[in-house]
């Protein structure tokens, strides 16, 4: 038996918005630790790794590990039937072929439930090695989203260059070139702070389209962390958190473009 009660059901809506462009279907792995999802997009260029900790749920029960394969477009349809402040309960029997979503309005006078058929998905898990990254950039997530959106107008690729001076995002295309430079600013307590932890300078180039999809997670967290090392995938991490609860994280991995 699996049952998880999420006080703020809207969190799952936001999580879905942050992965639905990249994945058509995915398995949610349930264990005592929480709900995990790890899946690559069809072209194996990006990977989504979602971790929702058991402690983030109001109630969480998972008697045995199970994997629930879901069509994300179907899940979006079901989540559309809920209000953002509904309490959400997800439940499934062991070996069930359906998962049930129950939405309760805050004042308790409206309860709806929806069963969704589960899918058998071939799971191909990737082993992601622990990496010490050459640069780690922490910045406001809405700023990241705007930069990626602005530069995507120029070209299919965005170069991210991280050095002692700060971070430079660049893109070149038919209409010309755009560069956006962010200096490290250490203004204490500022939410707009950009912090760079640098071991060595790194420049890597990535597909704009994927960065734009990742930026859809900006609604989940005020901060985003970009981790880069030469010739390895970029990691873009958003905490899934509200002011009073730490739900976990969503991480995106993106293979860099390779110079011929």
């Amino acid at each position: 038996m699996f049952e998880a009660r999420l006080a703020e059901g809207g969190i799952l809506k936001k999580v879905l918005d942050a992965i639905k462009e990249l994945l058509n279907e995915a398995s949610f792995d349930c264990s005592e630790a929480g709900l995990q999802l790890q899946a690559m997009d069809n072209s194996h260029v990006s990977l989504v790794s979602l971790n929702l900790r058991a402690e983030g749920f109001e109630n969480y029960r998972c008697d045995r590990n199970m994997s629930m394969g879901m069509n994300l477009a179907s899940l979006v349809k079901i989540m559309k039937c809920s209000a953002n402040d509904d309490v959400l309960t997800i439940k499934a029997q062991d070996n069930a072929d359906v998962v049930t979503f129950v939405f309760e309005s805050k004042n308790g006078d409206r309860v709806s439930d929806f069963d969704m058929k589960l899918m058998n998905l071939d799971q191909e898990h990737l082993g992601i090695p622990e990496t010490d990254y050459a640069c780690v950039i922490k910045m406001p997530s809405n700023e990241f989203a705007k930069i990626v959106r602005d530069l995507s107008q120029f070209g299919e690729s965005i170069a991210i260059a991280c050095s002692k001076q700060g971070v430079k995002f660049s893109s070149t295309g038919d209409i010309g070139t755009g560069n956006i430079k962010l200096a490290q600013n250490s203004s204490a307590d500022s939410d707009d702070k950009v912090v760079v932890d640098l071991q060595e300078p790194v420049t890597l180039t990535f597909a704009s389209r994927y960065l734009n999809s990742f930026a859809k997670a900006a609604g989940l967290s005020e901060k985003v962390t970009l981790s880069m090392s030469p010739d390895v995938p970029l990691v873009v991490e958003f905490k899934v958190a509200t002011s009073d609860n730490d739900y976990g994280y969503i991480r995106y991995y993106l293979a860099p473009k390779i110079e011929d």
């Binding site: 690559m40 072209s43 194996h44 260029v45 990006s46 990977l47 191909e124 898990h125 990737l126 082993g127 992601i128 090695p129 690729s157 180039t205 597909a207 390895v232 995938p233 991995y253 293979a255 860099p256 473009k257 390779i258 110079e259 011929d260």
Partner: peptide, 14 residues
């Protein structure tokens, strides 16, 4: 000119 890398070449399939 650049080509898009793939994750399979960086990570191991388990």
């Amino acid at each position: 000119k650049s080509t898009q890398g793939r994750l399979d070449s960086f990570f191991t399939v388990t």
